[in-house]
Amino acid sequence: MSISVTKLSSNGVLRGGVSFRNLSVVFPGHVNHPPVQALDHVSLEVRPREFVSLIGPSGCGKSTMLRVISDLITPTGGIALVDGEPPRKARLARDIGFVFQDAALLEWRSILDNVLLPLEIAGVPARERESRSRELIELVGLNGFEAARPRQLSGGMRQRASIARALSTRPRVLLMDEPFGAVDQITRDRLNMELVQITEKTNATVLFVTHSISEAVLLSDRVVVMSPRPGRILSVIDINLPRPRSLATRDDPHYTELIKFGAAELERGFARNEH
């Protein structure tokens, strides 16, 4: 499979580094609605090919960080960079892949045509985009469903298609905003294990937003715990579990320890939220 392509810049340095420096985002208020400080001077350096999870209660700004990196939101203060360049440049270079909580597939297109949509938009020749998409469909385990319509698939399968679509342009950075938030637990566990394999093959830096501490620990190199109002980073936990991760990782006593520790950190965030 030709998916395993490591993106190197011209001087041979690994690409896909993401920086947040003193990042602030304030959503303007309306009548009877005060302005919301979604992010308050947040700084974080993500290394190329690193898998970082952002976790925290609602309103802690974790999704906002992804939206800044994908150029969906312009920060009100500080800067965000992808390999030292503004997010807009990375977006226009099709170096950002985004998996939303909602699979957001075009219901009038087949799964294959949904997966190849970003390549079609980028003007990649038909034959090339199709073969690339077929590879990705195989990677996410949807072979046999190329011609199916999104409506005919389960929620988990639609999300697989959405992941394949996000990977189609070989992005340096893959952003995932609670991608498995709407699927059942059994499917979620399986998708987590598959995501481990997918991200190892694609070499993209991953920023992963989740509500589940066990999911975050299982997948990540680092887990960033955040607290809300205003959105801040509470702590960054190094997940020094051996790679590649597998089902056996869950039997590792250290895995349980990390989850306990993370849950306690998360609780601190909630406690701060209370008063």
Binding site: R91, F98, F100, A104, L106, I121
Partner: peptide, 26 residues
């Protein structure tokens, strides 16, 4: 149109014409 799909097109750097013909018109 679906707002999330609009975000998908934004991230994919789609032109206004591509947004019209590939998303809003369908």
């Amino acid at each position: 149109y679906d707002r999330v799909i609009m975000d998908v097109f934004h991230v994919a750097a789609a032109s206004p014409l591509q947004r019209f013909f590939k998303m809003r018109l369908p």
